[in-house]
């Protein structure tokens, strides 16, 4: 435990040093503030909480941005250190390999968590100060931030799996971008195409549910856009949330599984890897 924390602390400090934390926090805060004030402008006439609208737009943004940040943070974590030669020295210390992976994961999740909480939190506070107080929306906003961090954790684990599997950094970077494209863009487009072509013959509602759950980005989308009826109304996914019939806790468990399984696989593979 102690060794894991030492490594996590080092990763956090590295993140602070090389401006990763600063850059991602500023980026997320800037985008969140823009969405909060520009995107929430039409709410005056329909009388809904500006925060609720912001949740919809922010979670749509998170689906693109958070996995990208997570993959960029993580793809280099193992292969980069092996490449530079720092891993051989680290492993010559009284540290188990699983402690190295877990420590790095904790550190990277900490960096991403800090950036998300602060970046999005600033937007939330700014809306509050602008006079939108709706305690219920705050709960949903908090849940959105927490699930964004969880989504980040999922893609950090996937990035580690890539990092453990390949032999050089360039390949790892390429695969990481490929993973991002696949889960964030191509998967949904392909699914949509299949749905249109199939006209509901093979891909029935239960099949669609399963297909959606196979993509962590979609699990996140279901979790946030169907979280409350008020939100799902704006998000245009009114029917979807009720037809999946999956509660928030099931979706959270699925996201957690998406985080734990690749991480466990990375640890198992790293234990056998040559350094």
């Amino acid at each position: 435990m102690r060794q894991t924390l030492i490594i996590a602390g080092k990763e956090l400090r590295d993140g602070m040093r090389n401006r990763w934390v600063l850059a991602t926090t500023v980026l997320l805060a800037a985008l969140a503030l823009t969405l909060a004030f520009l995107g929430a402008a039409p709410t005056g006439s329909v009388k809904v909480s500006a925060l609720a609208v912001t949740i919809v737009s922010l979670s749509s943004l998170s689906i693109f941005l958070v996995p990208l940040i997570a993959l960029l943070l993580s793809y280099d974590a193992i292969v980069g250190e092996v490449d530079r030669g720092t891993m051989a020295l680290l492993l010559a210390y009284p540290v188990a390999r699983w402690q190295v992976v877990l420590g790095k994961f904790a550190g990277h999740l900490g960096i991403l968590g800090f950036a998300t909480v602060i970046g999005y939190g600033i937007a939330g506070v700014a809306l509050q100060l602008a006079g939108n107080e709706d305690p219920l929306a705050w709960v949903a906003f908090g849940a959105m931030i927490a699930s964004s961090v969880l989504l980040g954790g999922v893609f950090i684990s996937i990035g580690y799996l890539v990092s453990v599997l390949v032999r050089d950094r360039g390949t790892a970077g390429g695969i990481a971008i490929g993973v991002w494209l696949l889960f964030v863009l191509l998967y949904d487009m392909a699914l949509l195409g299949v749905l249109v072509a199939d006209q509901g013959r093979v891909v029935t509602a239960p099949v669609l549910n399963v297909l959606l759950l196979l993509n962590p980005a979609d699990v996140y989308r279901l979790l946030n856009l169907t979280g409350t009826t008020a939100i799902s109304g704006f998000a245009g996914v009114n029917g979807l949330g009720t037809t999946t019939g999956l509660g928030a806790s099931t979706l959270i468990c699925l996201l957690a599984a998406w985080m734990v399984v690749p991480l466990a696989a990375s640890i198992a593979l790293f234990a056998r890897r040559q350094v």
């Binding site: 080092k10 030669g85 720092t86 020295l89 010559a92 210390y93």
Partner: peptide, 17 residues
């Protein structure tokens, strides 16, 4: 390993620390 000291060939250390 607590009793060992190792200096790798072309020692690589973290440049930002």
């Amino acid at each position: 390993r607590r009793e060992l000291g190792y200096l790798p060939e072309n020692v690589a250390l973290h440049p930002s620390m």
